[in-house]
Simulated scan of single mutants.
Amino acid sequence: MEKFPKIAFPFIIIGVVLVILLSKSAVTIGPGEGGVMFERLGDGIDVERTYGEGFHIIMPWNSMIVRRVRQQSISDEMNVLSVNGLEVKVNGTIWYEPEFANLGKLIKTKGQDYERELLDPAINAAARSVVGRYTPEQLYSSKRDVIEQEILDEVTKLLEGQFLTVKRVLVEDVKLPATIKDAIERKLKQEQESLEYEFRLVTADKEAQKQIIEAEGKAESNRILSASLTDKILQDKGIDATIKLAESPNSKVIVIGSGDSGLPIILGDQ
Rank of each mutant, 00 (worst) to 15 (best):
L195Y: 06
I213A: 15
E87R: 10
L81H: 03
G85M: 01
E160Y: 13
A125G: 11
F55K: 12
D76Y: 03
G32P: 01
Q149R: 13
G161M: 02
L159D: 11
G15I: 00
G15T: 14
K3L: 13
K89F: 04
F55T: 06
D120C: 00
D240F: 03
E214A: 15
F199K: 15
D240E: 12
Q235A: 06
A125M: 13
S221P: 01
Q112I: 14
A101G: 02
K252P: 00
T28M: 02
A241E: 09
D173A: 14
V19L: 14
Q235H: 13
V130T: 08
E150M: 11
G257R: 10
I14Q: 03
R116H: 06
Q235S: 05
Q235T: 02
I239Y: 05
T165H: 14
T156E: 12
V27W: 05
E117G: 08
K237G: 05
T179R: 12
S248F: 00
I147K: 13
V202D: 12
V83N: 09
S141A: 13
D145H: 11
L139A: 12
S194D: 12
I224Y: 04
Y51A: 02
F199N: 12
A246L: 15
Q138N: 10
F55D: 00
N102P: 04
E53W: 05
G34Y: 02
F55C: 05
Y96T: 06
E53N: 09
L41D: 09
G262L: 12
L119N: 01
K218L: 12
P10A: 08
T50A: 07
F199D: 10
I254F: 14
F9H: 10
E214I: 14
K89R: 07
D182Y: 00
I14M: 10
Y140I: 05
F199V: 00
E33M: 08
R70V: 09
G238P: 03
I147H: 05
V36Y: 00
S63E: 11
K189A: 14
F163I: 07
V130K: 07
Q209K: 15
K108L: 00
K108P: 00
T156P: 03
E207H: 00
I12K: 11
K3M: 08
